[in-house]
């Protein structure tokens, strides 16, 4: 089973996770810029974080045979803090980078006026940079929030096929698929979406424009939920090709619209030597 996790926050995960993900079939992933749990109080904290999404994290991932891409944005929650707003002005510099395959996560948290502005501005940035957009839907008041998000997407003028609305559920999937946008589902141990519910949604709505992710982060989450969903699909009678479509071809098609999803790198490009780094690199040296 080859797996592309279209939404996972590896910054919060360990090398054990990378090993387990590789063993489970994960060969590529997208790490969206997001909220870190602890509020950031200055734009500079964001820039170091973005640099890490473009530098250290792909380097770590490569050591485990996983290709790492990212999305860059000011997340909805922190868009409410005036101290963080200057980040919006610096985004164009990051959206020009090779491994940035979308603008994201953008969207609503509490549906404030500030979030409205940040969402609209960043959808325009996606249009200017010819990038897809990864749009988070709010956890509270989800149905109304999703409807409002779709209105803003429509008003922005961005092509719906360049937009994925994420963290959907049974009540929000139809309106998103009907809009022409992609539908993203975050399969979690307890909240958001489960493997079995995911299977029923695909049975009912089909697998076109459907993305399944683990959205694993620093909270209770599981980086292997993509594979577990694939196994649940097989157990429910889906063909292996359908699983491959959901877990690999769909995310490749969605992020491929950026023109930057370079999944077949030149082999002799400098990259960390796997055998060497086991003994040499600090992240694998334990306490040395």
């Amino acid at each position: 089973m080859r797996i592309f996790d279209p939404h996972i926050h590896m910054t919060s995960r360990t090398t054990d996770d990378y090993e387990a993900m590789f063993a489970a079939g994960v060969r590529a992933l997208v790490e969206p810029a997001f909220w870190l749990g602890q509020p950031r109080t200055s734009p500079e904290s964001f820039y170091d974080y973005f640099d890490s999404l473009l530098g250290w994290e792909p380097y770590r991932a490569a050591q485990f045979g996983i290709q790492h891409f990212c999305t860059i944005a000011l997340n909805p929650k922190e868009a409410n803090d005036p101290r963080c707003m200057p980040v919006l002005d610096e985004l164009p510099r990051y959206l020009a980078k090779d491994r940035v395959v979308a603008v994201g996560e953008i969207g609503y948290d509490s549906m404030t006026k500030e979030e409205d502005e940040a969402l609209a501005r960043q959808l325009q940035l996606a249009i200017e940079h010819e990038l897809p957009a990864l749009v988070h839907t709010p956890h509270r008041d989800k149905e109304a929030g999703t409807r409002r998000t779709l209105d803003v997407v429509r008003e922005s003028g961005i092509a719906p096929e360049l937009v994925v609305l994420d963290h959907l559920n049974e009540l929000t999937v139809s309106m998103v698929l009907d809009s022409g946008c992609w539908a993203g589902f975050s399969v979690y141990p307890k909240t958001k979406m489960s493997e079995d519910r995911m299977v029923r949604i695909i049975q009912e709505h089909g697998s076109d424009r459907v993305l399944v992710n683990s959205a694993a982060d620093w909270g209770r989450s599981d980086p292997l939920k993509t594979r577990k969903t694939g196994l649940a699909m097989l157990a429910a009678g889906f063909a292996a090709d359908e699983v491959d479509k959901v877990l690999w071809r769909n995310p490749v098609a969605f992020y491929g619209q950026s023109g930057r999803l370079d999944l077949d790198p030149v082999l002799d490009e400098p990259k960390p030597d796997e055998s060497a780094t086991y003994q040499g690199n600090s992240i694998k040296r334990g306490g040395e």
């Binding site: 250290w56 400098p270 960390p272 030597d273 690199n281």
Partner: peptide
């Protein structure tokens, strides 16, 4: 830093 590709460069 720790990135060997950068250290080499």
């Amino acid at each position: 830093g720790n990135d060997t590709t950068l250290i080499e460069a």
